[in-house]
Computed example of a mutant assay.
Amino acid sequence: MGQLSRLAGTVRPGGRTARVRAAVLEATQDELVEHGFHGLTMDQVAARAGVGKTTVYRRWGSRAGLVVDLMNELANQSMPHADTGGIEGDLRANALSVLGALTDGRLGATFQAVVAAATCDEQAAEALRAFHLRRLEEWVGVVDLAVKRGELPEGTHAAEMIRAISAPLYYRLVVTREPVTPAVAERSVVRTLAAARAGAFVEPVE
């Protein structure tokens, strides 16, 4: 997961529709950061984006619809997986990417707001799941390559290994509210890699 603190740079040449979407998504993120999901209103997003309320209601339908589109855009703009030539370097790059996103004042607040929303809104939960599945799909290849290079055991479950890297970071951000630091990210990499080399992520044969 890479860093994206502003959506303005995502506007592509091609007309008003792209500009409107970028303005609305940036306004949505601003409102999430400042007021959380429950303080997010369609009218305020429209006013902040300088877009007619009718346009926002017609295109996005609800605040959950805004969050779904925002998370989709964040996934689109996240950095691709690393290719350092070795699994340790690749996993460290993944951990630092997650760390950078979670400690960014704007992105970290965005994720906290969406995680909170996901506990009570199914559309928000689906948006969060889709975001993380997109990021998992991007990074599982580094584990598969490591297996082919003989760095990890055959049958290593790539997605579970990538999840294990980021899980302690999200736990601190959302549950215990402890600092998410480079040392935490490094320990997550070291422990996950040691477990993987010991076969902890190998899928059992049924």
Rank of each mutant, 00 (worst) to 15 (best):
A158I: 03
L4S: 11
P13M: 04
E160I: 10
Y57C: 03
L169Y: 00
H38W: 08
I87Y: 06
E73S: 11
A127M: 01
P182Y: 04
K53M: 07
E138P: 00
M42H: 00
E122L: 14
L152Q: 08
L25G: 07
L193Y: 07
R92V: 00
R12L: 15
T103D: 06
V115H: 15
D121A: 08
W60L: 00
V115E: 14
H35N: 13
E73R: 08
V143A: 00
V115K: 14
Y171I: 13
G2E: 07
Y171R: 14
M161E: 05
G39I: 13
G108A: 06
V51D: 01
A109Q: 12
A200L: 04
V205S: 14
G108S: 02
G89I: 00
A167D: 15
G14Q: 09
A113H: 01
V190Q: 12
A183H: 12
A82Y: 05
P182K: 00
L70E: 03
T103H: 10
A75N: 01
D43K: 13
P204R: 09
L193R: 04
D104H: 09
D144Q: 14
W60R: 00
Q3L: 15
L32N: 02
A46E: 05
L25Y: 03
T156C: 04
A95F: 02
R19W: 09
L102Y: 10
